[in-house]
Amino acid sequence: MLEFKGLTKQFRDNVAVKPATLTIPDGQMVGIIGRSGAGKSTLLRMINRLNEPSGGQMLFDGRDITALKGRDLRQWRNECAMVFQQFNLVGRLDVLTNVMSGRLFHHGFVTSMAGMFSAKERAFAIRALDRLGMAHTALQQTDTLSGGQMQRVAIARALVQEPRIMLADEPIASLDPLNAKVVMDALRAINQEDGLTVICNLHTLDTARQYCDRVIGMQDGVIVFDGTAKELTDKAAREIYGAEAEEAFSEAMTSTSLRPGDKPAAEAPRVVN
């Protein structure tokens, strides 16, 4: 269970996230929506401390996350994997090494510097890739892949961390509709089959409605909506998005008009086991 107690983030002269208090139980799929600059990304990046909170507290199963330092902090980051909008993979390394880098926390200094990975790690990484239908690219250089493929590799890297929570910062904002669906389906499958908590920043309303158990709306750093997808009426959504409402609605029409579990797309992820 992840608890926020008045978590805030202040950049020099503006407050990106005003005191936020939330409780996210295990196994929920949460979508955070809001227009660009609403503080979604900052909130998400505070969870794994890529952005340092300026105030407040964050607890995970009673453990104070905001106070972690050094190895404890890295262990926490290893427990809550993150998927980024721009994938943040190492383009010049092969896909397999990128995925195996998710195990680095368990390595000693020498083996990680020498890039030595065990056969077990390799088999595990292949299995993770296989789950996302990407095992055939294992030996390709990563920057030769398409955006959708890279995002699935990034999810595989997150999976080999064996995380407790999966954070996804605008995972489909750089993808075309078909790939967006593949990636969102994968995240949903991880949430349902593995029981992982997934917290996902989304720009488009429709995606959030279709995939998430719970939707959190943010506006100017304040949480203005917190409820189930059904409770998110068009009126409430218009309030969250303000001037960008039309854009958010129209994007929703084009980007994820495919519903989860419709007919499988050509490259839909296979679920192993």
Binding site: K120, R122, L139, G195
Partner: peptide, 26 residues
């Protein structure tokens, strides 16, 4: 219940993966 479990990877799993992706094992 996780479908991916590092500790549960057995020698048989490694051998199977090696068989399908021999080059991935260096």
């Amino acid at each position: 219940m996780s479908t991916l479990n590092f500790a549960a990877i057995s020698q048989a799993d490694i051998d199977a993966a090696r068989k399908r992706h021999p080059k991935a094992f260096g």
